[in-house]
Amino acid sequence: MAFQEPFLDMRDVTVSFDTKTILERINLRLNSGELVMIVGPSGCGKTTLLRAVNRLNEEYPGCVTQGRVRIRIQDKWLDCSTRDFPLIDLRLRVGMVFQHPNVLPFSIRKNLTLPLRVSLGLDKDEAERRVQQALEDVWLWDEVKDRLRDNALTLSGGQQQRLCLARVLALDPAILLLDEPTASLDFKATQKIEALFQSLKERYAILAVTHSLSQMRRLADRVLVLRNGELVAELGREEFEDQESCRAIMEEYF
């Protein structure tokens, strides 16, 4: 598969919390139309790595991030690691889906319109248009179009996670960060979400964390192995496509 130019470029990124180093000198490039997965043992810093991209780590006190993170927007590289870079713009360009579906206890519609109106200041009509588009993008429109006023918590786990994804897509990001988005779902819902990611990766650069090696083999174009806060390996499709060799490689790194 031919990928376009890189969308995200991380250079020597080190993240520490209160003197404890969580990530050490991470170098990473993400191309548009590419789905890169990060795997590694629990506590190795996978989530912190995702949050280093949209600088969400800095919401915690005592976090220090060094190094450089750049994203490419309309053929211009922007250095988003500088202190005065507008965080809001960065987070609108880099959407994130969390491990557990974190829908707000509001109606389905309001879950989608709230960020559109608060962050983008869109008017009602434009917000409504984007709501429908985003719900169609995550194959949820037909399931919920007659119950947009219902509380989002009445949806099933899989539907809630797709709603969370729709909420992010409605903001029109360029990069998606997915933090084990199927971890709390059953296999049927997982299947649907995976198929969805397959279709979305044509349009977005996706950086995802997973604990499931089979999911990694099904979805990833490239795999980064993280151990104790360091990237220890980068694997292309041909290296992990075969189940046995994939297992052998992972045994070695985990």
Partner: peptide
């Protein structure tokens, strides 16, 4: 925590 981080991840300011 996941609720606390949700707003910032969607581009909200601290007050929003």
């Amino acid at each position: 925590d996941h609720l606390r981080l949700l707003g910032p991840s969607l581009g909200f300011t601290a007050w929003q």
